[in-house]
Amino acid sequence: MKITLDLSKLLEQGKITAADAERLKALAATETGNLGLNILTGFGVIAASAGAVAVMLTAFDFTAQSAAIIGGCVFGLGLLLLLARGEMVSLLSQTLILIGALTGGAGLLILEDGSLRAAAFVTAVLAVTAVLARSSLMAALAVVSLAGCLGARTGYIHAMYSLSIQEPLVTVVLFSGLAFALYLISQQVRADYERISLAAARMSLVLVNFGFWIGSLWGDRLRLYRYIVYNDPKGGPDFTAHGAVIPPYVFSIGWAVALIAAGVWGVKSGRRWVVNLAAVFGGIHFYTQWFEHLGANAFSVLAGGILLIVIAFALRTLNRKPSPAS
């Protein structure tokens, strides 16, 4: 578990010695450097994998099947190198595993035209990769891929981003349970795997909030339930695009209750990330409902801005307080 300490204040209060402060600063510097390298490596791996697939499909006129096979071979080579010892070989092995998993997964998804079977397989591969390569990035991507199995999508059109959650209720329930399970697992495993479990749990919480967000605007038409009951891809009889079975206000109220509960739990257990997440999505929830019902007028903008400033000051005060031991 990572915590935040104000070394200068602790030193002034006599709770630590100057030697303790210097030792903790040195440890923090090492951790910060490793974090920067991990982030740089993660973005580099994603860029290299995407570029490799693009080059294979265009410049070399390879097929998606070829990309999937080559990615699988690179993944297998990385697994073989895991048996070797040495820091450089270990780094190379983890990099090959990540690139192979992403390249092969992308090729498979293109080959299968984004089918559920392919998405489920890629999710499993990413999850296994996260454990083998001890990669928080892969753990987070595995959770995102699982959401894709439920029809979650993002999109971009010039100057406009979009988010689609096809099953808000299922998304909220599934990823809430997954986040809780991963949190329990993180308390039983070693530090490296704790980090991986918490990364996946955090991404799960983000998706829970996305599910609430979409549900609070359009409700839930329970498409999956209708498909199972009526065995009809269109959703069964009398299905309409705006025919929400669960109305939006249910998600709005449930989201507010969940955010408050998560924030209170985060404060009591010293989980600053959860508190900050609750605060961020609390602001998003407020603004969404405020402008959805009141509209964008001078009064609503003024009142909403003042309330957001109050929330920001409260969050800033909370972040300055020492975290309780957990």
Rank of each mutant, 00 (worst) to 15 (best):
Y161T: 11
Y161F: 11
Y161H: 12
Y161K: 07
S162M: 03
S162E: 11
S162N: 05
S162A: 11
L163M: 09
S164W: 00
I165M: 04
Q166W: 00
E167Y: 08
E167S: 08
P168I: 02
P168W: 03
P168Q: 08
P168F: 04
L169I: 05
V170R: 14
V170M: 07
V170Y: 12
V170L: 14
V170A: 13
T171K: 01
T171R: 02
T171A: 05
T171Y: 01
T171H: 04
V172P: 03
V172W: 01
V173W: 06
V173Y: 00
V173L: 11
V173R: 08
L174G: 04
L174M: 14
F175L: 05
S176T: 15
S176V: 03
S176M: 03
L178W: 01
A179V: 06
F180L: 15
F180K: 05
F180M: 08
F180T: 10
F180A: 15
L182V: 05
L182A: 07
L182Q: 03
Y183M: 12
L184D: 05
L184V: 14
L184C: 13
L184E: 13
I185T: 11
Q187H: 09
R190Q: 13
R190I: 09
R190N: 15
A191T: 11
A191L: 13
A191R: 10
A191M: 10
A191S: 13
Y193E: 05
Y193D: 05
E194W: 00
E194L: 02
E194D: 12
R195P: 00
R195N: 13
R195C: 01
R195F: 06
I196H: 00
S197E: 04
S197N: 12
A199S: 14
A199Y: 02
A200N: 07
A201D: 07
A201M: 10
R202H: 12
M203V: 09
S204W: 02
S204T: 04
L205Y: 03
L205M: 09
L207G: 00
L207V: 15
N209G: 10
N209D: 12
F210I: 00
F210C: 12
F210E: 07
G211Q: 05
F212M: 02
F212T: 02
F212S: 00
I214T: 10
I214V: 15
I214Q: 06
G215P: 09
G215A: 03
G215E: 04
S216Y: 03
S216K: 01
W218T: 13
W218R: 14
G219T: 09
G219D: 08
D220C: 11
R221K: 14
R221C: 01
R223V: 12
L224V: 12
L224S: 14
Y225T: 15
Y225G: 00
R226K: 13
R226Q: 11
Y227F: 14
I228W: 08
V229D: 11
Y230H: 15
N231K: 14
D232R: 07
D232F: 09
P233F: 09
K234V: 07
K234F: 10
K234D: 13
G235E: 11
G235P: 03
G236R: 10
